[in-house]
């Protein structure tokens, strides 16, 4: 394999995994913007997406598109239920307590998944076959293109939602100033509910697309959540564009590190880059522009 085809190979592997990190990072940002909470259950939504999809397609023989939509819907409802049961009943809770609640939530989701589906790993068929595409000597799985495509679809939908719809603008208003938002008649608690539902749905979509190439098991959520958190922080917490760029960047760095140095150091490389960037630019890559100062999503 020539160096060029190796580079292309690693680049695509990196963009694939990076797309997953980006989607998890976007989920972190949506909830952070609406509530100021870091939702540590974010990675579990990814795991649940994959597991529910496996369950639906094996137990009920659902075809792929229906299974995909239904799984996303189910996990979206789980996210909404989590907010209603664990976050909503509290009166004026401090953010730290909320964060600890999400940590508890992640443990509960993980435990429930283990009870329901056991400790074994599950797989899903690839969306459109496993016949790899060849590009300058590199082999690219069609599933990788699916994952990158789903990220692009999610980004496009979010951009439309936040810039062209009233609920999206209301959500941004809540993140800028929740008190003023309630003074124009926005039900802030409902926006919080919506943010949890959306984050869970995006996480689930990522998990479903990811399962065919990596296998899914009950405790996969934590590490994915951590990487997604890295993407969110590296991009500048609360900044959607930043999360996508940083997620892809972390994925590519990991992939090159694993390919050229050693796959043992994969996670260390991602976290090392995060540490260095935060030392130099504590606000993250996109965190200091003027729009970001005004807390733009």
């Amino acid at each position: 394999m020539s160096l060029l085809s190796q580079i292309i190979q690693f680049l695509f592997t990196g963009l694939t995994i990076g797309s997953i990190y980006a989607m998890v990072g976007l989920g972190f940002n949506i909830i952070y913007n609406a509530t100021g909470i870091i939702n540590f259950a974010q990675g579990e939504f990814v795991m649940l997406g994959g597991m529910v999809m496996v369950w639906l397609t094996t137990a009920f023989n659902l075809p792929l598109p229906a299974g995909f939509l239904l799984s996303v819907l189910i996990v979206t409802c789980i996210g909404a239920a989590f907010e209603r049961l664990a976050i909503f009943p509290l009166k004026k809770p401090p953010v730290l307590i909320l964060i600890i609640i999400t940590l508890a939530g992640s443990i509960i989701f993980k435990g429930a998944a283990m009870l329901l589906w056991g400790k074994q790993t599950y797989s899903l068929p690839h969306f459109s076959g496993e016949e790899p595409l060849h590009l300058l000597g590199a082999t690219i799985l069609p599933q990788a293109l699916w994952i990158i495509g789903i990220l692009m679809a999610v980004v496009a939908l979010l951009a439309f939602f936040f810039n062209f719809t009233i609920p999206g603008k209301a959500m941004r208003a809540c993140s800028v100033n929740p008190v003023a938002a309630s003074l124009v008649g926005i039900n802030v608690k409902r926006i919080v509910l919506l943010s949890f539902a959306m984050s869970a749905g995006i996480g689930a979509a990522a998990g479903i697309a990811f399962t065919p190439i990596v296998l899914m098991e009950f405790d996969r959520g934590a590490l994915l959540g951590l990487k997604g958190f890295c993407a969110a922080v590296l991009g500048g917490l609360g900044n959607g564009t930043g999360a996508v760029i940083a997620g892809l960047l972390i994925g590519v760095l990991e992939s090159f590190g694993a390919g050229f140095i050693s796959s043992e150091y994969k996670d260390a490389i991602a976290l090392g880059v995060l540490l260095i960037v935060l030392l130099v630019r504590p606000s993250g890559l996109m965190g200091s522009r003027e729009a970001a100062r005004l807390k733009e999503f």
Binding site: K169, R172, A180
Partner: peptide, 14 residues
């Protein structure tokens, strides 16, 4: 307490 990162028109619409 206006919504700074949103346009004037968006503030009115909200």
């Amino acid at each position: 307490q206006i919504f700074g990162p949103l346009s004037v028109l968006d503030n009115l619409r909200l």
